[in-house]
Design a protein around this nucleic acid. Structure first.
Length: 481
RNA sequence: GCUGCUAUAGUGUAGCCCGGCCAAUCAUUCCGGCCUUUCACGCCGGAGACUGGGGUUCAAAUCCCCAUAGCAGCACCA
Protein backbone atom coordinates (compact mmCIF):
# COMPACT_ATOMS: atom_id res chain seq x y z
CA UNK A 1 0.00 0.00 0.00
CA UNK A 2 2.72 2.43 -0.88
CA UNK A 3 0.47 4.57 -3.03
CA UNK A 4 -2.99 5.22 -1.73
CA UNK A 5 -4.21 6.73 -4.93
CA UNK A 6 -2.91 6.77 -8.44
CA UNK A 7 -2.48 9.73 -10.69
CA UNK A 8 -5.52 10.33 -12.79
CA UNK A 9 -4.90 9.64 -16.41
CA UNK A 10 -7.08 11.82 -18.56
CA UNK A 11 -4.72 12.62 -21.35
CA UNK A 12 -6.95 12.66 -24.36
CA UNK A 13 -5.87 11.40 -27.69
CA UNK A 14 -4.69 13.98 -30.13
CA UNK A 15 -6.61 13.98 -33.42
CA UNK A 16 -5.19 11.51 -35.91
CA UNK A 17 -2.85 12.68 -38.62
CA UNK A 18 -3.56 11.72 -42.22
CA UNK A 19 -1.24 9.20 -43.89
CA UNK A 20 0.66 8.58 -40.69
CA UNK A 21 -0.16 4.96 -40.05
CA UNK A 22 3.12 3.73 -41.46
CA UNK A 23 5.19 6.03 -39.29
CA UNK A 24 6.14 9.68 -39.38
CA UNK A 25 9.19 11.91 -39.47
CA UNK A 26 8.69 15.15 -37.63
CA UNK A 27 10.84 17.97 -36.41
CA UNK A 28 11.15 20.70 -33.88
CA UNK A 29 12.97 23.63 -35.42
CA UNK A 30 13.86 26.44 -33.02
CA UNK A 31 15.98 29.45 -33.74
CA UNK A 32 18.86 29.44 -31.24
CA UNK A 33 18.28 32.92 -29.89
CA UNK A 34 17.64 32.10 -26.25
CA UNK A 35 16.22 29.52 -23.90
CA UNK A 36 12.96 27.77 -24.68
CA UNK A 37 9.73 29.02 -23.16
CA UNK A 38 6.24 27.64 -22.78
CA UNK A 39 5.34 28.63 -26.30
CA UNK A 40 8.17 26.50 -27.67
CA UNK A 41 7.11 23.65 -25.42
CA UNK A 42 3.81 23.35 -27.24
CA UNK A 43 5.46 22.72 -30.63
CA UNK A 44 8.15 20.51 -29.15
CA UNK A 45 5.74 18.35 -27.14
CA UNK A 46 3.06 18.00 -29.80
CA UNK A 47 5.46 16.85 -32.48
CA UNK A 48 7.06 14.49 -30.00
CA UNK A 49 3.69 13.04 -29.09
CA UNK A 50 2.85 12.22 -32.67
CA UNK A 51 6.20 10.58 -33.30
CA UNK A 52 5.65 8.42 -30.22
CA UNK A 53 2.15 7.59 -31.35
CA UNK A 54 2.90 6.59 -34.93
CA UNK A 55 6.53 5.63 -34.58
CA UNK A 56 9.27 7.17 -36.66
CA UNK A 57 11.91 9.80 -36.20
CA UNK A 58 11.99 13.05 -34.31
CA UNK A 59 14.51 15.58 -35.54
CA UNK A 60 15.76 18.61 -33.69
CA UNK A 61 16.76 21.10 -36.33
CA UNK A 62 18.60 24.16 -35.16
CA UNK A 63 17.63 26.96 -37.53
CA UNK A 64 20.64 29.21 -37.29
CA UNK A 65 20.74 30.77 -40.74
CA UNK A 66 20.52 34.33 -39.51
CA UNK A 67 23.78 35.34 -37.84
CA UNK A 68 22.03 38.38 -36.43
CA UNK A 69 19.70 36.20 -34.44
CA UNK A 70 22.01 33.53 -33.15
CA UNK A 71 23.04 33.54 -29.52
CA UNK A 72 25.97 31.11 -29.23
CA UNK A 73 24.90 30.14 -25.72
CA UNK A 74 21.51 29.10 -26.98
CA UNK A 75 22.96 26.04 -28.70
CA UNK A 76 23.52 24.68 -25.24
CA UNK A 77 20.47 26.07 -23.49
CA UNK A 78 18.07 24.75 -26.13
CA UNK A 79 19.51 21.28 -25.77
CA UNK A 80 19.33 21.47 -21.99
CA UNK A 81 15.74 22.65 -22.08
CA UNK A 82 14.70 19.83 -24.40
CA UNK A 83 16.51 17.32 -22.25
CA UNK A 84 14.62 18.60 -19.25
CA UNK A 85 11.35 18.18 -21.14
CA UNK A 86 12.31 14.59 -21.77
CA UNK A 87 11.55 14.38 -25.46
CA UNK A 88 12.54 11.51 -27.67
CA UNK A 89 14.86 13.23 -30.10
CA UNK A 90 16.57 10.88 -32.53
CA UNK A 91 18.65 13.25 -34.59
CA UNK A 92 20.04 16.76 -34.34
CA UNK A 93 20.69 18.86 -37.40
CA UNK A 94 22.36 22.26 -37.56
CA UNK A 95 21.39 24.27 -40.58
CA UNK A 96 24.69 26.11 -40.44
CA UNK A 97 26.36 22.77 -41.26
CA UNK A 98 24.34 22.49 -44.42
CA UNK A 99 25.05 25.68 -46.31
CA UNK A 100 26.60 23.76 -49.20
CA UNK A 101 23.43 21.74 -49.53
CA UNK A 102 21.38 24.91 -49.76
CA UNK A 103 23.82 26.43 -52.26
CA UNK A 104 23.50 23.38 -54.50
CA UNK A 105 19.74 23.43 -54.22
CA UNK A 106 19.73 27.15 -54.93
CA UNK A 107 21.74 26.66 -58.08
CA UNK A 108 19.47 23.82 -59.06
CA UNK A 109 16.44 26.03 -58.62
CA UNK A 110 18.00 28.73 -60.82
CA UNK A 111 18.73 26.10 -63.46
CA UNK A 112 15.12 25.03 -63.35
CA UNK A 113 14.08 28.62 -63.94
CA UNK A 114 12.46 28.76 -60.52
CA UNK A 115 14.59 31.53 -59.10
CA UNK A 116 16.52 34.61 -60.15
CA UNK A 117 19.16 36.79 -58.65
CA UNK A 118 17.78 40.23 -58.02
CA UNK A 119 19.90 43.34 -57.65
CA UNK A 120 17.05 45.76 -57.30
CA UNK A 121 17.04 48.11 -54.36
CA UNK A 122 14.74 46.64 -51.75
CA UNK A 123 12.49 49.69 -51.68
CA UNK A 124 12.15 49.57 -55.46
CA UNK A 125 11.39 45.90 -55.42
CA UNK A 126 8.76 46.42 -52.79
CA UNK A 127 6.96 48.94 -54.94
CA UNK A 128 6.99 46.61 -57.93
CA UNK A 129 5.80 43.74 -55.79
CA UNK A 130 2.86 45.70 -54.45
CA UNK A 131 1.98 46.68 -58.03
CA UNK A 132 2.18 43.01 -59.07
CA UNK A 133 4.92 43.89 -61.53
CA UNK A 134 8.03 41.93 -62.44
CA UNK A 135 11.35 43.48 -61.51
CA UNK A 136 13.95 43.98 -64.25
CA UNK A 137 15.98 41.02 -62.99
CA UNK A 138 13.14 38.55 -63.32
CA UNK A 139 13.35 37.96 -67.09
CA UNK A 140 17.12 37.46 -67.03
CA UNK A 141 18.41 34.31 -68.68
CA UNK A 142 19.46 31.32 -66.64
CA UNK A 143 23.05 31.95 -67.71
CA UNK A 144 22.97 35.53 -66.48
CA UNK A 145 21.44 34.41 -63.21
CA UNK A 146 24.05 31.72 -62.77
CA UNK A 147 26.77 34.27 -63.32
CA UNK A 148 25.30 36.56 -60.69
CA UNK A 149 24.80 33.60 -58.35
CA UNK A 150 28.44 32.62 -58.55
CA UNK A 151 29.42 36.19 -58.08
CA UNK A 152 27.35 36.20 -54.95
CA UNK A 153 29.08 33.13 -53.57
CA UNK A 154 32.49 34.52 -54.50
CA UNK A 155 31.95 37.76 -52.69
CA UNK A 156 31.36 40.15 -55.60
CA UNK A 157 28.41 41.71 -53.84
CA UNK A 158 27.97 43.34 -50.46
CA UNK A 159 25.20 42.93 -47.95
CA UNK A 160 21.86 44.29 -49.14
CA UNK A 161 22.95 44.55 -52.73
CA UNK A 162 21.60 41.28 -54.02
CA UNK A 163 19.19 38.49 -53.22
CA UNK A 164 17.91 35.30 -54.78
CA UNK A 165 14.16 35.29 -55.31
CA UNK A 166 11.79 32.47 -56.02
CA UNK A 167 9.48 33.03 -58.98
CA UNK A 168 5.90 32.91 -57.83
CA UNK A 169 2.55 34.04 -59.11
CA UNK A 170 2.85 37.81 -59.09
CA UNK A 171 -0.93 38.02 -58.88
CA UNK A 172 -1.04 36.18 -55.57
CA UNK A 173 -3.44 38.10 -53.35
CA UNK A 174 -0.87 38.07 -50.57
CA UNK A 175 2.04 40.36 -51.49
CA UNK A 176 4.21 38.47 -49.02
CA UNK A 177 4.15 35.49 -51.35
CA UNK A 178 5.17 37.33 -54.49
CA UNK A 179 8.74 36.45 -55.48
CA UNK A 180 9.82 35.91 -51.91
CA UNK A 181 13.56 35.84 -51.15
CA UNK A 182 15.52 32.62 -50.79
CA UNK A 183 19.09 33.83 -50.16
CA UNK A 184 20.73 37.02 -49.05
CA UNK A 185 24.11 38.23 -47.94
CA UNK A 186 24.87 38.79 -44.28
CA UNK A 187 28.32 40.25 -43.86
CA UNK A 188 28.16 40.93 -40.16
CA UNK A 189 28.09 39.82 -37.49
CA UNK A 190 30.09 36.74 -38.35
CA UNK A 191 28.24 33.50 -37.83
CA UNK A 192 29.45 31.78 -34.65
CA UNK A 193 29.76 28.39 -36.31
CA UNK A 194 30.61 28.91 -39.97
CA UNK A 195 32.58 31.28 -42.16
CA UNK A 196 30.04 32.37 -44.75
CA UNK A 197 28.31 35.42 -46.11
CA UNK A 198 25.52 33.95 -48.23
CA UNK A 199 22.70 32.57 -46.13
CA UNK A 200 19.42 30.98 -47.13
CA UNK A 201 16.23 32.48 -45.77
CA UNK A 202 14.04 30.32 -43.62
CA UNK A 203 11.54 29.41 -46.32
CA UNK A 204 14.20 28.00 -48.58
CA UNK A 205 16.27 26.07 -46.05
CA UNK A 206 13.15 24.72 -44.38
CA UNK A 207 11.69 23.39 -47.61
CA UNK A 208 14.98 21.82 -48.67
CA UNK A 209 15.58 20.28 -45.27
CA UNK A 210 12.07 19.02 -44.79
CA UNK A 211 12.43 17.15 -48.03
CA UNK A 212 15.99 15.92 -47.59
CA UNK A 213 15.37 14.81 -44.02
CA UNK A 214 12.23 13.01 -45.05
CA UNK A 215 9.88 15.05 -42.88
CA UNK A 216 6.34 13.78 -43.38
CA UNK A 217 4.28 15.92 -41.01
CA UNK A 218 4.78 19.42 -39.66
CA UNK A 219 2.99 20.87 -36.67
CA UNK A 220 3.64 24.54 -36.11
CA UNK A 221 1.89 27.76 -35.21
CA UNK A 222 -0.40 29.54 -37.59
CA UNK A 223 2.07 32.34 -37.97
CA UNK A 224 3.64 29.96 -40.50
CA UNK A 225 0.59 29.62 -42.74
CA UNK A 226 1.94 32.09 -45.27
CA UNK A 227 5.31 30.34 -45.13
CA UNK A 228 3.67 27.08 -46.04
CA UNK A 229 2.35 28.78 -49.17
CA UNK A 230 5.80 30.01 -50.02
CA UNK A 231 7.45 26.68 -49.38
CA UNK A 232 4.91 25.06 -51.63
CA UNK A 233 6.53 26.79 -54.61
CA UNK A 234 9.88 25.26 -53.79
CA UNK A 235 8.43 21.79 -53.41
CA UNK A 236 6.68 22.17 -56.74
CA UNK A 237 9.74 23.40 -58.62
CA UNK A 238 11.68 20.40 -57.43
CA UNK A 239 8.80 17.99 -57.85
CA UNK A 240 8.95 16.94 -54.22
CA UNK A 241 5.93 15.69 -52.29
CA UNK A 242 4.85 18.09 -49.58
CA UNK A 243 4.61 17.11 -45.94
CA UNK A 244 1.26 17.31 -44.16
CA UNK A 245 0.92 20.58 -42.26
CA UNK A 246 -1.09 21.47 -39.19
CA UNK A 247 -1.13 25.05 -37.96
CA UNK A 248 -2.32 25.52 -34.43
CA UNK A 249 -3.70 28.80 -33.11
CA UNK A 250 -2.00 31.46 -31.14
CA UNK A 251 -1.50 30.86 -27.43
CA UNK A 252 -1.41 33.90 -25.19
CA UNK A 253 0.41 33.48 -21.93
CA UNK A 254 -0.27 35.95 -19.18
CA UNK A 255 1.76 36.91 -16.19
CA UNK A 256 5.26 36.20 -17.49
CA UNK A 257 7.74 37.73 -19.89
CA UNK A 258 8.32 35.71 -23.05
CA UNK A 259 10.08 38.03 -25.45
CA UNK A 260 13.71 36.99 -25.77
CA UNK A 261 14.87 40.55 -26.32
CA UNK A 262 12.95 41.78 -23.29
CA UNK A 263 14.34 39.00 -21.15
CA UNK A 264 17.87 39.64 -22.32
CA UNK A 265 17.58 43.36 -21.67
CA UNK A 266 16.07 42.74 -18.24
CA UNK A 267 18.87 40.40 -17.28
CA UNK A 268 21.51 42.82 -18.48
CA UNK A 269 19.97 45.67 -16.51
CA UNK A 270 19.61 43.54 -13.42
CA UNK A 271 15.82 43.54 -13.41
CA UNK A 272 15.89 39.75 -13.68
CA UNK A 273 18.36 37.49 -11.96
CA UNK A 274 18.86 35.32 -15.04
CA UNK A 275 17.08 33.17 -17.60
CA UNK A 276 15.51 31.23 -14.77
CA UNK A 277 14.06 34.26 -12.99
CA UNK A 278 10.59 33.11 -11.96
CA UNK A 279 8.93 36.12 -13.50
CA UNK A 280 9.95 34.81 -16.91
CA UNK A 281 8.09 32.20 -18.92
CA UNK A 282 11.15 30.10 -19.71
CA UNK A 283 11.16 26.39 -19.07
CA UNK A 284 14.08 26.85 -16.72
CA UNK A 285 12.06 29.33 -14.71
CA UNK A 286 9.19 26.94 -14.19
CA UNK A 287 11.62 24.11 -13.53
CA UNK A 288 13.13 26.19 -10.78
CA UNK A 289 9.74 26.43 -9.14
CA UNK A 290 9.40 22.69 -9.06
CA UNK A 291 7.03 22.26 -11.94
CA UNK A 292 7.71 18.90 -13.52
CA UNK A 293 8.30 18.38 -17.23
CA UNK A 294 5.58 15.72 -17.23
CA UNK A 295 3.12 18.35 -16.06
CA UNK A 296 4.14 20.64 -18.90
CA UNK A 297 3.74 17.81 -21.37
CA UNK A 298 0.31 16.88 -20.11
CA UNK A 299 -0.82 20.48 -20.16
CA UNK A 300 0.34 20.86 -23.75
CA UNK A 301 -1.24 17.62 -24.86
CA UNK A 302 -4.45 18.80 -23.25
CA UNK A 303 -4.33 21.99 -25.28
CA UNK A 304 -3.72 20.09 -28.48
CA UNK A 305 -3.44 21.39 -32.02
CA UNK A 306 -6.66 23.36 -32.39
CA UNK A 307 -6.64 26.27 -34.80
CA UNK A 308 -8.44 28.53 -32.37
CA UNK A 309 -6.54 31.10 -30.39
CA UNK A 310 -6.35 30.22 -26.76
CA UNK A 311 -5.07 31.57 -23.49
CA UNK A 312 -2.69 29.37 -21.63
CA UNK A 313 -3.98 28.57 -18.17
CA UNK A 314 -1.52 28.41 -15.32
CA UNK A 315 -4.28 26.86 -13.22
CA UNK A 316 -4.46 23.90 -15.56
CA UNK A 317 -0.70 23.46 -15.52
CA UNK A 318 -0.64 23.67 -11.74
CA UNK A 319 -3.38 21.09 -11.47
CA UNK A 320 -1.33 18.71 -13.58
CA UNK A 321 1.71 19.36 -11.49
CA UNK A 322 -0.18 18.93 -8.24
CA UNK A 323 -1.26 15.52 -9.49
CA UNK A 324 2.38 14.54 -9.79
CA UNK A 325 3.88 16.29 -6.85
CA UNK A 326 1.33 15.83 -4.10
CA UNK A 327 2.24 12.18 -3.72
CA UNK A 328 5.96 12.72 -3.52
CA UNK A 329 6.36 16.00 -1.66
CA UNK A 330 7.22 15.76 2.00
CA UNK A 331 5.37 18.10 4.31
CA UNK A 332 7.11 20.71 6.44
CA UNK A 333 6.27 23.75 8.48
CA UNK A 334 7.20 27.12 7.10
CA UNK A 335 6.34 30.07 9.29
CA UNK A 336 6.33 33.29 7.38
CA UNK A 337 6.67 36.61 9.17
CA UNK A 338 7.09 34.79 12.49
CA UNK A 339 5.78 36.03 15.82
CA UNK A 340 7.43 34.61 18.94
CA UNK A 341 5.13 33.34 21.65
CA UNK A 342 6.00 32.18 25.11
CA UNK A 343 3.52 29.45 25.97
CA UNK A 344 2.75 29.34 29.66
CA UNK A 345 1.62 26.25 31.44
CA UNK A 346 2.87 23.80 28.87
CA UNK A 347 5.41 21.11 29.60
CA UNK A 348 8.16 20.28 27.15
CA UNK A 349 6.96 17.92 24.47
CA UNK A 350 8.28 16.18 21.41
CA UNK A 351 6.07 16.30 18.32
CA UNK A 352 6.24 13.88 15.41
CA UNK A 353 4.29 15.20 12.44
CA UNK A 354 4.07 12.89 9.45
CA UNK A 355 6.25 13.54 6.46
CA UNK A 356 3.29 12.65 4.30
CA UNK A 357 -0.27 12.42 5.63
CA UNK A 358 -1.50 9.64 3.37
CA UNK A 359 1.71 7.70 3.58
CA UNK A 360 2.69 7.16 7.23
CA UNK A 361 5.32 4.64 6.19
CA UNK A 362 7.47 7.46 5.00
CA UNK A 363 8.14 8.50 8.56
CA UNK A 364 7.95 11.63 10.64
CA UNK A 365 9.78 14.82 11.45
CA UNK A 366 10.73 15.62 15.00
CA UNK A 367 10.14 18.96 16.69
CA UNK A 368 10.98 19.69 20.34
CA UNK A 369 8.62 22.07 22.07
CA UNK A 370 10.39 23.96 24.88
CA UNK A 371 8.03 26.74 25.94
CA UNK A 372 8.73 29.17 23.08
CA UNK A 373 7.38 28.91 19.51
CA UNK A 374 7.16 30.99 16.37
CA UNK A 375 3.87 31.18 14.50
CA UNK A 376 2.82 33.05 11.33
CA UNK A 377 1.72 36.60 12.01
CA UNK A 378 -1.38 36.29 9.83
CA UNK A 379 -2.81 33.66 12.19
CA UNK A 380 -2.92 36.09 15.09
CA UNK A 381 -5.44 38.41 13.53
CA UNK A 382 -8.48 36.19 13.95
CA UNK A 383 -9.55 34.06 16.86
CA UNK A 384 -7.35 33.79 19.92
CA UNK A 385 -7.95 30.06 20.26
CA UNK A 386 -5.57 28.09 18.06
CA UNK A 387 -4.17 24.63 17.73
CA UNK A 388 -0.51 24.11 17.02
CA UNK A 389 -0.61 21.23 14.60
CA UNK A 390 0.49 17.92 16.08
CA UNK A 391 1.08 19.61 19.43
CA UNK A 392 -1.70 21.14 21.53
CA UNK A 393 -4.13 24.02 21.81
CA UNK A 394 -3.19 27.51 22.90
CA UNK A 395 -4.96 30.72 23.74
CA UNK A 396 -3.32 34.03 22.89
CA UNK A 397 -2.77 35.98 26.09
CA UNK A 398 -0.69 38.95 25.00
CA UNK A 399 1.52 40.35 22.28
CA UNK A 400 4.10 37.61 22.69
CA UNK A 401 2.33 35.43 25.13
CA UNK A 402 0.05 32.43 25.01
CA UNK A 403 -1.19 29.86 27.44
CA UNK A 404 -1.64 26.17 27.11
CA UNK A 405 -5.30 25.44 26.39
CA UNK A 406 -5.52 21.70 26.54
CA UNK A 407 -4.51 18.81 24.34
CA UNK A 408 -7.91 17.94 22.99
CA UNK A 409 -8.06 17.84 19.23
CA UNK A 410 -11.81 17.38 19.46
CA UNK A 411 -12.20 20.60 21.34
CA UNK A 412 -10.11 22.45 18.77
CA UNK A 413 -12.33 21.04 16.07
CA UNK A 414 -15.51 21.83 17.93
CA UNK A 415 -14.44 25.43 18.30
CA UNK A 416 -13.23 25.56 14.72
CA UNK A 417 -9.82 26.63 15.88
CA UNK A 418 -7.33 27.07 13.06
CA UNK A 419 -4.77 24.29 13.12
CA UNK A 420 -1.59 26.11 12.33
CA UNK A 421 2.05 25.47 11.60
CA UNK A 422 4.62 26.43 14.23
CA UNK A 423 8.31 26.03 14.97
CA UNK A 424 10.30 25.78 18.20
CA UNK A 425 12.28 28.96 18.81
CA UNK A 426 15.51 27.04 18.97
CA UNK A 427 14.88 24.60 16.14
CA UNK A 428 14.50 26.42 12.88
CA UNK A 429 16.32 27.75 9.85
CA UNK A 430 15.83 31.14 8.24
CA UNK A 431 13.98 30.62 5.00
CA UNK A 432 13.14 32.84 2.06
CA UNK A 433 10.23 31.74 -0.07
CA UNK A 434 10.45 33.43 -3.45
CA UNK A 435 7.11 33.92 -5.12
CA UNK A 436 6.23 35.70 -8.34
CA UNK A 437 4.58 38.37 -6.24
CA UNK A 438 7.59 38.88 -4.00
CA UNK A 439 9.62 37.21 -1.28
CA UNK A 440 8.20 35.83 1.95
CA UNK A 441 10.64 35.86 4.83
CA UNK A 442 10.29 33.31 7.56
CA UNK A 443 11.64 30.20 9.14
CA UNK A 444 11.33 26.53 8.35
CA UNK A 445 12.15 23.16 9.83
CA UNK A 446 15.87 22.26 9.86
CA UNK A 447 15.13 19.04 7.99
CA UNK A 448 14.23 21.08 4.90
CA UNK A 449 17.98 21.43 4.35
CA UNK A 450 17.98 17.79 3.36
CA UNK A 451 15.41 18.36 0.62
CA UNK A 452 17.68 20.28 -1.72
CA UNK A 453 16.21 20.40 -5.25
CA UNK A 454 13.14 18.50 -4.10
CA UNK A 455 9.61 19.74 -4.13
CA UNK A 456 8.11 19.92 -0.66
CA UNK A 457 4.79 21.11 0.62
CA UNK A 458 4.90 23.84 3.20
CA UNK A 459 1.73 22.99 5.07
CA UNK A 460 -1.07 25.47 4.53
CA UNK A 461 1.17 27.49 2.21
CA UNK A 462 1.72 25.41 -0.89
CA UNK A 463 4.26 23.49 -2.91
CA UNK A 464 7.76 24.82 -3.30
CA UNK A 465 11.11 23.68 -4.59
CA UNK A 466 14.09 23.91 -2.30
CA UNK A 467 16.64 25.75 -4.38
CA UNK A 468 19.51 26.49 -2.01
CA UNK A 469 20.74 25.65 1.40
CA UNK A 470 23.84 27.45 2.51
CA UNK A 471 25.15 28.99 5.73
CA UNK A 472 22.13 27.53 7.49
CA UNK A 473 19.74 29.50 5.29
CA UNK A 474 17.12 28.04 3.01
CA UNK A 475 15.93 29.49 -0.28
CA UNK A 476 12.79 28.06 -1.78
CA UNK A 477 10.71 28.88 -4.83
CA UNK A 478 6.95 28.78 -4.69
CA UNK A 479 5.22 26.61 -7.29
CA UNK A 480 1.52 26.73 -6.50
CA UNK A 481 -0.96 25.91 -3.77
C1' G B 1 -6.73 48.32 -45.40
C1' C B 2 -5.83 43.67 -48.14
C1' U B 3 -5.65 38.15 -47.89
C1' G B 4 -6.86 34.07 -45.04
C1' C B 5 -8.30 31.21 -40.74
C1' U B 6 -11.26 30.52 -36.40
C1' A B 7 -15.65 31.13 -33.10
C1' U B 8 -18.63 25.26 -27.35
C1' A B 9 -18.90 27.30 -19.70
C1' G B 10 -13.76 31.73 -16.14
C1' U B 11 -9.86 28.40 -18.69
C1' G B 12 -8.57 24.18 -21.83
C1' U B 13 -11.15 20.45 -24.51
C1' A B 14 -14.84 16.43 -26.85
C1' G B 15 -18.80 16.47 -30.39
C1' C B 16 -18.98 19.36 -36.11
C1' C B 17 -16.31 16.10 -41.75
C1' C B 18 -21.00 11.55 -42.07
C1' G B 19 -27.80 16.61 -39.05
C1' G B 20 -31.56 13.05 -34.96
C1' C B 21 -28.46 8.70 -29.65
C1' C B 22 -26.42 16.55 -27.28
C1' A B 23 -31.92 18.67 -21.99
C1' A B 24 -23.70 18.92 -25.11
C1' U B 25 -18.02 15.30 -22.88
C1' C B 26 -13.87 15.41 -19.78
C1' A B 27 -10.42 18.26 -17.00
C1' U B 28 -9.55 22.65 -14.45
C1' U B 29 -11.79 26.71 -11.73
C1' C B 30 -15.51 28.39 -8.27
C1' C B 31 -19.34 27.14 -4.39
C1' G B 32 -21.38 23.63 -0.78
C1' G B 33 -20.75 18.99 2.11
C1' C B 34 -17.83 14.66 3.87
C1' C B 35 -12.95 12.99 5.26
C1' U B 36 -8.59 14.90 7.60
C1' U B 37 -4.18 17.22 13.55
C1' U B 38 -2.61 21.51 6.39
C1' C B 39 -6.62 26.09 3.42
C1' A B 40 -3.09 19.76 0.26
C1' C B 41 -4.92 14.95 -1.32
C1' G B 42 -9.41 11.88 -1.63
C1' C B 43 -14.87 11.38 -1.89
C1' C B 44 -20.04 13.37 -2.76
C1' G B 45 -23.00 17.30 -4.71
C1' G B 46 -23.72 22.01 -7.30
C1' A B 47 -22.82 26.32 -10.60
C1' G B 48 -21.21 27.33 -15.54
C1' A B 49 -21.18 27.08 -22.81
C1' C B 50 -23.05 25.79 -28.55
C1' U B 51 -21.01 34.53 -30.69
C1' G B 52 -25.68 36.97 -33.00
C1' G B 53 -29.26 36.81 -36.95
C1' G B 54 -31.37 34.51 -41.09
C1' G B 55 -31.89 30.05 -44.25
C1' U B 56 -32.26 24.57 -45.57
C1' U B 57 -34.74 20.40 -42.99
C1' C B 58 -39.76 16.62 -39.99
C1' A B 59 -35.06 17.58 -37.18
C1' A B 60 -29.12 22.00 -36.75
C1' A B 61 -23.78 22.77 -31.86
C1' U B 62 -23.34 19.99 -36.49
C1' C B 63 -25.01 22.12 -43.45
C1' C B 64 -25.56 27.29 -46.12
C1' C B 65 -25.59 32.82 -45.97
C1' C B 66 -24.87 37.45 -43.49
C1' A B 67 -23.14 40.14 -39.33
C1' U B 68 -19.83 40.59 -35.29
C1' A B 69 -15.40 39.40 -32.79
C1' G B 70 -10.55 37.42 -32.39
C1' C B 71 -6.14 35.99 -34.60
C1' A B 72 -2.37 35.35 -38.43
C1' G B 73 0.37 37.14 -42.59
C1' C B 74 1.37 41.41 -45.56
C1' A B 75 10.38 41.43 -43.29
C1' C B 76 16.40 40.51 -47.68
C1' C B 77 13.48 37.06 -39.07
C1' A B 78 12.31 32.22 -37.67
Amino acid sequence: MEELHTTREHTRDLPPLPSAERGVVMRFAPNPSGPLHIGHARAAVLNDAYVRRYGGRYILRIEDTDPKRVDPEAYTTVREDLEWLGLDIHEVVFQSDRLDIYYRAGEDLINRGGAYVCTCESERFRELKLARKACPCRPLSIEDNLERWHGMLEGSYVEGEVSVRVKTDLDDPDPAIRDFPAFRIVASPPHPRVDAAVFPLMNFSVAVDDHLLGVTHVIRGKDHIANTERQKYIFEYFGWPMPVYRHYGRMSIEGVVLSTSQMRAGIREGTYTGWDDIRLGTLRAIARRGIKPEAVKKAMLDIGIGETDISFSWDNLYARNRDLVDRIANRYFFVSDPVRLVVKGAASKVSHPLLHPSNPGRGTRTLHFEQTVDVPRVELTGTSFLRLKDLFNIRIAGPNEAEHAGDSLNEARAQRAPIIQWLPAGEQLPCILHTQEGDLLGVCEPAVAGELENVVQFERVGFARIDRSSDGRIEAYFAHR
